[in-house]
């Protein structure tokens, strides 16, 4: 479904992503793991197209020059130069790092804004679905986004992304700053979403332990390059991964 080939991203002269090749097969959950500065967020921004927007802004400001090279194949078309809004229409939806919900809109409004691309019936159906997978959101739907707790905000962000009818859902560090209990709930829900509506999911995370059980295929990023790849089982058996991510 998504095929990233020879992707390179430079921030001025610093290389953030170095020759990454990556494939996300339809209907599976792919994980990308790595420490800080491994290039996870850059990868997500580049796939979702936000990078083009950042690049434009930097150019206007006379700041860093961002270079994106390589190709991103999505459903048979190269989308490397496609605008983020066009990509969203094609079904690539990013659930950004640090959630970025609209703090002054209520939870329900946040979800409705996310449903801008959906038809009325789709939006209604997805809204109900979001409320069934995240029951706590239903109770809090009138509360302003900024007053929700971290875990609720993350649920809201995932719900908002779902409202946009994704075919490929990009989850950038969905477990950032959450308690282990919420982590487990979220990981389980992500798996449910994948199973129940068959969305392809690409998920990045620093802390691999809660995510590893749910992924089908994974990549390990290090300093901008993909150093390891394999099925969840293969990765889990790799001694380097074991020591780095599981402390065994």
């Amino acid at each position: 479904m998504l095929e990233v080939k020879n992707l390179m991203v430079f921030y001025e002269n610093a290389i953030a992503i170095n020759n990454v090749n990556m494939t996300c097969k339809k209907g599976v959950i792919t994980g990308a793991f790595g420490a800080n500065s491994a290039g996870k967020s850059t990868l997500m921004y580049t796939i979702s197209g936000i990078m083009l927007d950042i690049k434009k802004k930097e150019e206007m400001r006379g700041g860093e020059r961002i270079t994106v090279l390589g190709s991103i194949n999505y459903d048979g078309a190269d989308i490397i130069n496609m605008k983020p809004s066009e990509r969203a229409k094609k079904g690539i939806i990013l659930c950004p790092e640090r959630r970025r919900i609209f703090p002054e809109s209520s939870a329900l409004e946040n979800l409705k804004i996310g449903g801008y691309l959906a038809t009325k019936t789709q939006a209604k159906k997805t809204l109900e679905y979001v409320f069934t997978i995240f029951p706590s959101l239903k109770e809090l739907q009138g509360r302003e986004g900024g007053f929700l707790s971290g875990g609720e905000q993350q649920m809201l962000a995932i719900g908002r992304a779902l409202m946009a009818q994704p075919k490929l859902l990009l989850l950038d560090e969905p477990l950032l700053g959450l308690s282990p209990r919420i982590e487990a709930i979220l990981a389980r829900t992500v798996k449910e979403i994948n199973r129940e509506i068959g969305i392809t999911i690409l998920i990045t995370e620093q802390y691999a332990r809660p995510i590893f059980p749910i992924i089908d295929y994974g990549y390990v990023l290090e300093n901008g390059g993909a150093v390891l790849e394999g099925t969840a089982k293969e990765l889990m058996e790799n001694p380097d991964v074991k020591s780095a991510y599981f402390g065994l």
């Binding site: 002269n13 020059r65 270079t67 090279l69």
Partner: peptide
């Protein structure tokens, strides 16, 4: 092999 170039800027 894809030959690509980019403009590099240095002090």
């Amino acid at each position: 092999v894809i030959e690509e170039t980019r403009r590099k800027r240095l002090d």
